[in-house]
């Protein structure tokens, strides 16, 4: 039996239950931020810069193997931030990738900050685009911009932001440069002031398009509240065991229940603005 969680007007966190299920203590936070990115792009350094904590950082990929959590306050909002293990993709599943994907998918953070290495933008964008398939609210943190400059790489941040449909903030996390900007955008996306329109991959193949549509229709009938039907349909087509399991047991409906309330909340904050 799915119990519909009522949208509580006093608590802005729409998905508290799922987060608590993932082991996040949400008792005194307004929003949850997930920190994702390729290995060794400086996620932990950004985490430290935001929280003032001293998570051990190291110049080697794969240093963070578990979720680290911290908190900060900005604009009188209290934020919980979760540092996820670095991953190159969300598609081929290894332990650390699973931690990251499950959190972004099932935890439904209010904002997903994707830290990218400015010197290796093209490869990093692969992950960015994959994250965009799962979540609507993201901020891209264009880290190591100093290294890019030193190596003669110039990035047009405004165009990049337009292309991606989300805020892009250049930073040098080691020197805490750009962190205030990053905070500002996180806050705007979390509160709904900035409405993201993340770029989605065009599926050109006609057969694939049709298959997705058929599955979406079917899924929608069984799980009317499921957000991101397209993504779930695609994963089913690919034979993703975990998603298959979640659909079989009906767990996916429970896990993604929150989406309905999340839409409510968006309209709610929209009303306030008007």
């Amino acid at each position: 039996m799915n119990k519909v969680v009522p949208d509580c007007e006093n608590c802005p966190v729409h998905n508290v239950n799922n987060l608590i299920k993932l082991g996040i203590d949400m008792s005194s936070y307004d929003y949850v931020i997930a920190l994702a990115g390729n290995p060794n792009t400086g996620k932990s350094t950004v985490f430290n810069a935001l929280t003032g904590l001293h998570q051990h950082t190291g110049n080697w990929p794969g240093k963070t193997v578990t979720r680290a959590e911290g908190g900060f306050e900005f604009n009188s909002h209290k934020y919980k931030i979760v540092d996820l293990p670095g991953t190159y993709s969300l598609l081929s599943i290894s332990t650390d990738e699973e931690v990251a994907r499950n959190f972004i998918l099932f935890g439904q953070p209010d904002v997903t900050v994707i830290v990218v290495d400015a010197t290796r933008l093209e490869r990093n964008l692969n992950l960015v685009l994959q994250v965009f398939e799962i979540t609507d609210r993201a901020v891209v943190c264009l880290n190591l911009i100093d290294e890019a400059e030193r190596n003669g790489i110039e990035i047009d941040v405004r165009t990049l932001s337009k292309e991606l449909g989300v805020p892009v903030v250049p930073t040098v996390a080691r020197e805490k440069k750009g962190i205030t900007e990053l905070l500002k955008y996180i806050d705007e996306v979390a509160t709904g002031k900035y409405v993201c329109k993340p770029r989605r991959i065009k599926k050109r193949d006609k057969k694939l398009r049709q298959a997705i549509e058929v599955l979406k229709y079917k899924l929608n009938k069984v799980f009317p509240d499921l957000p991101n039907l397209e993504w779930v349909a695609l994963r089913l087509l690919e034979g993703d065991q975990e998603i298959i399991k979640a659909v079989k047991s009906g767990e996916i409906g429970k896990i993604l229940q929150s989406s309905a309330t999340s839409i409510n909340r968006e309209s709610y904050s929209g009303e306030i603005k008007q």
């Binding site: 093209e122 003669g152 790489i153 110039e154 990035i155 047009d156 941040v157 990049l160 292309e163 770029r199």
Partner: peptide
């Protein structure tokens, strides 16, 4: 995206 936004000096 990279073609549109990144330039190498």
């Amino acid at each position: 995206i990279v073609k549109k936004t990144v330039r190498k000096k």
